[in-house]
Amino acid sequence: MLTRIRAPEEAPTEVGAELGSVSLRGVCKTFPAPHRCAAPVTALDDVSLEARAGQIVAVVGPSGCGKTTLLELVCGLIEADAGAVDAAPAALMAQRDLLLPWQSAVDNAALALRVAGLARDAARRQASVLLRDFGLEGFERARPHELSGGMRQRVAFARTLLSGRTVLCLDEPFAALDALTRQEMQDWLAGALAVQPRTVMLVTHDVEEAIVLADRVAVLSPRPARVVATLDVDVPRPRRRTDPRLVALRERALQELRA
């Protein structure tokens, strides 16, 4: 099922304070050996990375290189072994939508508001405004299994936005979608972030996704992850995928990945 996705026209939620920033300096993280015969796994080795307020920073790297570990550090879910992680409170959005199957779309979107102690009705009102802006009008009461993959990710993104965090950590948010829906969702996300700016750490293994969406792209090496290159994407939005500057940057990023 294909629905037209329209970017939100007005900011429904105000992030009152200024946008937060993220800074990692010389961060190392090693996990204990999974079993006795294995060596400890070094996920991150001296990683430095910065996202200034309102910036979208994409992190690309080979599968299993420690990208998710990076986001968990930023979200404060784990502690670094060495180095400094300095980040405003961040909300995490994963590849799997992680919607609660027993709740409607609107209640799923309102989850963070409920955690914050908002009454059910007020939380629903706020969430349904955002869902409408995300092109989900009429689906507020649908359960997740009644929604398409793209719609579910939009509900999950609404939930992430409504957490009120100014830093968003997106962990391969569209990797589970088919190619067509993925492109559509990338354009949609670019539009949504243009209206509601956030500081974003976007982890992906899709180089094109990184270049199309981000202000800056950090390329990681295979494990243990290290930043091997940082590319600035100085191309104004809205961007076209066929823009020669983007194509050239994509080539460079791919070269760095293979190096």
């Binding site: 992680l98 955690v115 914050a116």
Partner: peptide, 21 residues
């Protein structure tokens, strides 16, 4: 899902909230 528990933690949910919700 362990990721669901992590999600709740990034929302600042208490142990009890995660259990209840």
């Amino acid at each position: 899902d362990a990721d669901l528990r992590k999600l709740m933690r990034t929302f600042g949910a208490s142990r009890w909230q995660t259990f209840r919700m």
